[in-house]
Each structure stands twice: as structure tokens, then as C-alpha cells.
Design a binder for these strands. Sequence first.
DNA 1: GTTCTAGAAC
DNA 2: GTTCTAGAAC
Length: 754
Amino acid sequence: MDVDEPAKGKEGKPIIVLLIGAPGSGKSTFCEQVMSSSTRPWVRVCQDTIKNGKAGTKAQCIDSARSALKNGKSVFIDRCNLEKEQRDEFVKLGRPQVDVHAVVLDLPVKLCISRSVKRTGHEGNLQGGRAAAVVNRMLQKKELPKLSEGYGRITFCQNESDVESAIGTYSGLGPLDTLPHGSFGQKNPGAKVQLGIMKFLKKTDVPANTESTSKRVQDSDASQVIGKRDTSLKEACLVSESANMESKKDEEPVIGSVGIDVSLNDTPTLAFPSISTADFQFDLEKASDIIVEKVAEFVNKLGNARLVLVDLTHKSKVLSLVRNKAAQKNIDSNRFFTFVGDITKLHSEGGLRCNVIANAANWRLKPGGGGVNAAIFSAGGPTLEVATKEQAKSLYPGNAVVVPLPSTSPLFCREGVTHVIHVLGPNMNPQRPNYLDNDYSKGCKILYETYTSLFEGFASIVRTQKKLPEGSIEILQTKLSEPQDCSESAPKTHSTNSDKKSKREDLHESERSKRSKEYQDEAENVSDSNTGKVNLSNIKSDGSKTKTWGSWAQVLYNIAMHPEKRKDVVLEISEDVVILHDIYPKAQKHLLVVARDHGLDCLADVRKENLELLRTMHAVGLKWAEKFLHDDSTLVFRLGYHSAPSMRQLHLHVISQDFDSAHLKNKKHWNSFNTAFFRDSVDVLEEVSSDGKAILNDDESLMSVELRCNRCRSVHPTIPKLKLHIGRCRASFPNTLLQNGRLVTAPSNANTDP
DNA sequence: GTTCTAGAAC
DNA sequence: GTTCTAGAAC
């Protein structure tokens, strides 16, 4: 255990551990759990109870901690400690005689709030809203600790399993033990969809790892020092988090928990599992031949990049087969090797730095199913799912999809993974889709293609990141053999942040045109039985994919075609559009401007030729908003489209921002108007005018993000509580909404709310 | 899209 | 016991 500083005397050093977290983040529970099983003498200094069970002062906490440390006790500082200034005096109690640690309980805001509410539930009727307000207010001041503040060790916990493992670490710490120094776990800079709240945080963090200094970190069994700044990684980070990210020059090195020095290493490395040999039951001998052959082909064409075959267990037969065959072929063991470990924790647990990992995906590119796929999707977090969906909806055997990982993904922050490449290999398992029934001539061909697609995908990342001259990776230019209906689409799936949009389009086109009947049927079955939704995939006569709508989803379409029949709801009819009150308004004023064109079902169908129509819709919407504002100048309107509407026929929402309506009942109602899922009409106009189409944020997961106030961005645990809050909140709207005319207000209001 | 309702969360 | 969510049915 004694990795960092060998114990000099017989006695262990006391440590002072600052717990950092909002009310309800579990600080006290953390202390209690460690203290109940630890053999080290601990004292918990809790500001809430320090005065004979009642709340005391910071000074009392400092005194109490100082005397405990003097007596050789280790100390937990159990108070929120969210701001650096609040922590500084405790840190000073430490060094050099006492080791100072921080444990950051950076759990989901919603969880903290709900726990706080529970805790204060007996203290009268104010509980819920008040606890939420307190937690929100405190978190707005959050400053994550840095090693440079004076800590020997910082542990970041983002979920309960992180907390559990930290509890384990501290519980197991005997009186004489010390823990390795460094920063552990993942810092949470705030999820992608919550960028709005970042302006409330005093600082934002560039994800760990991306800016290591060349500081040497000593270790008991490895002391390789590779500490150069990796600019390509940093670029990737800044590209995907362009908003609000400030670069910092004093970031601390991050080291893995097993004590190997894993500071940044700029060798591009692809870690990949053996494809098709687990659940897909592909013959191991044949598979290992193919792996080695493909590796031999690519390894010399990838510059200094490395390929690593990963398996969870030493007993893996495919690993030993590949090792032997690679040795026979004299493959450079610096460029290709095998590795035993969890592919989602290569950096944090294995000390192996891999900027790209491959996933043995399923054809739906969905989480689950066990094995590597489940592990990678779970480790990648919802952001991986969203990012994957942006690239492709499905995958064919033999193909690969390169997914740039948003910097908010735990895999990016914790493991330094910048890309996940999903691949689908051939299947020899009768229980799985596309069973090849032991047809190994077909199977081998597909497996070759799978690895080709995978390594090409990796090569494209290497090339983009390193900006190597085109010719240095000739393999990219070599054409794949054309086996079955769907293999050559792989090169089109290569993608980087910078060219994502165009590549996405390419991919979809190729995927659409290649969709075989077999897959279609299955897709329909799946969406039918698994989601219960009626919007199945359909194939139009031109072969492109379209959406079919349930009967209930046709209402708007029918009105658009025959508005005269629905004079009860229709406000205005013109040649191009119909204006009506939303039948279930989600705010005081909620109109729909419906296009009358046949064939324009939704925003996804909109192209440049519809630009004039969009402008008309916007103008008509604006006219009505202004009409309402004339009658009630306190209203604020927003005009926009749902990325994936439930109702057929393109329609623009004109909705007042009070969201004061009995029809607003669930998360989806709220999030469909208050996340990136809602596309402001002004932005759509700009995008269609410049790109010929609108950006769609149509991921379902946006519908289940935490409920944030549309003004102050505070989080609320339930819809009723959110509604209580928005009824009162008078904060001004977030800056993004105040810009570019996204909000429409009465002239006197001039975009400034009191 | 809504309604209904089981059962989870409080 | 009551509130709230989320999934199925429409």
C-alpha cells in the first residue's frame, strides 16, 4: 500500500479528509461507513452537530480537528466545503506532518435534493422547495478542489458505485497505511445538456488527463514518465465542449488507482476486444488467424500507433492463440500486444492509455446484451448513446462506426478515450440475429471486413489527430473487397468532430440504401414490441426510410389538409399555413403554425427548397405572438420546432414561457420545450439557409434529463415541484435565449426581465 | 399526442 | 396513505 511515501517511523501519519459535497450528497454516511469498519482511529468533525448535537461554527470545527490530529487521530471534515475559501484553513491543518485528502461527492443534483428533502421532511411544511433551493444555491458556488490547493490525494465520486469504492478504500486503510497520492476518479464539468448552468459555476474543468504536466510521479513498481501535453487530445476536448471551456495551464497530473504511472502518453492506441468469438461463437482458431493477419497488415501503416487486443481474463484462449501467432509472424510487440483487463478501465485500473476503444456492438447500436457492449455503453454513459445515435442508427456485420466521444462522457474524462469504434462481426450463434449457420467462408470474409473497418476507422482518427500527410496511411485508399450487400459503407462512417455533419449525412444515406429486408423486419419488430410506439420504419418507393405515424398522430395532418372542417380550433388559414391553438396547450398561450405542404411531416424533411415556407411560418408565428403581447406584455414567447415531433405534419410551436398549464404533466412535456430537443425557429432558419437542413437533437434521452428551470436553471425533483418553482421564479432567462431573437417579448420589455 | 393505472417513491 | 412516474393502450 505504501506507494507514495514509504513510512519512515513505526507510526502511521494521521490524515485529514475533507468531504466535499452538497447537502444530501452522503458525506455523513460516508464517514459513518468508514468509521464503522476501519481499524484506524477516526474522528468525524461535523459542523451540523459540533455544538452538542447542534450546528456550530467553522472555527469550532478547526479547533476540534486540530486537537484530534494532535492526538494522532485521523479526521473527517464533514461540512459542505464547496468553495476553496471554505477549505483553505482545513488544508493548512495538514502538511507537512499530516496528509490532506479530499473526497468529492459530486452526485447528481437531483439525488442530493431528494435526500435533503427527505431529511428535512419533519421540520415543517417548507421542506421540499426549500431544500431544493438550498442545494441549488450551494452548488452554484461549487469549486472543485485541485491538488495544487494542497491535497495529497483527491477522490472524485460521481455516482454511488464511485462512493462505495471510495468507502472501501478508506475503510481498508489501517493505522500504518498510506494511500497513493494523486487525483482519482472523474471530474464532472457538467453534462452536455446542462451547459446553461455552467455560467453559475465559478470555474469549469477541462476533463482530467487532457492537460497533464510533465511532473514525475513515483511509483513502487513502475516509474515510466511520459508526461507530454497531448495537444490533439486537448483539441478534441475543446472542440466538443467549445462553449464555456477555459483552458488551464496548471492542471494536475492524474494517476491511475493501481499505482502505475499513467500520465499522458501521446502514442495513439486502439484497444479492441476479440470480435465475434464470445457471444457470436466464432471459431477461435479462425478468428485468431484473422486478427493476426489484419494486425500484421495494419501495424506498419499506422505510424507509431499501437493496437492492443484486450480480454477480461488471463484464461482467454483467443488471447494466447493470438499471442503465439503474432510472435510467429514477428509482429513488433511495441506496436501490437495483448492485454488482460477491463476495456472500460484500461487507464484507471490497468495503467494503459488508449485513446480509442472498439466495441463489439449489436446491430442496433444500443446498450445491453451483456459482455463488452453492455460494459462500454455503461461506462460511456448516456452521452455515448447520444453520440452514437448521431453517427448511425444501425450497423451491418463487417462494418464500423467511429463515434467521437463528448468530453462529458466518463470514458473520456476518466480513461482519456476520445473515440469509440462500434463494430459488428459475423454471428455463428443461432440465437442471435444474422446467424450464418456455420458458413465460415462467409463468416471469415465478414470478420476480415470487420477488422479492416475497425483499423481503418482507427487510422482515420490517427490521421486526423496527428494531421499526418495523406499518403502515410495508404491503407485508407485501398478498396475493400465487395462481399455482401453492405460492407463498403465503412469508410463513410469515419468521422471526426469537425466534419461530423457531413459524415452523418453520408452514413445515413448509405445505411438507408443498404437496409436489407431482413433488418427492416427486425427493426420493426423491435420498435413495435420494445417501445410500444407506432412510428415504425417504412421504406418509401425511392428506397429511403421514412416514419409511419399512428392514427392519433394524424390529427394535425388532417387539419392541414382540411382546415375548414375544424373551425373550432383553427385561428387562421392561408395558402401555406394553418394556425391553431394547441389542443393541449402547455402554457398560457400555445399556438401551432402548421405547414400545408403534403409530404412535409417534420423538421427532418425540411430542405433548402422549404426555406420560404419556414420564413412564412416564422413570420405568422411572430405576428400572433405580438398580438398576444399586445394584450399581455408580461408574456414571453419562444418559437421553435421539436426535433422529433409526435404529431405528423411540420408545425411550429409558438409558446409562452410561463408553462402555466394543467396539460404540462410529465418530463417529456417539459423537456421537449426546454432542452436542445426544441429547435428555435431562428436557428432552424439559419441552418436551412446555410446547410440546406436543420440540426436535429432527436435523442430520446433528452426527454429524461433532470428538470431544470427555464430561467435560473435550478434542478427540481418532480414535475409538481418544478411547476411550483417556475410559478415564482423571476430570474432572467439564460443568455443563449436572450440572444438572436430567440425570445419574443413586448417592445417595452426589450429582452430584459426584472 | 392523451389516458389509465400499477407500483415506486415519498 | 398519498404523490408521482412511467409504461401500455389507444
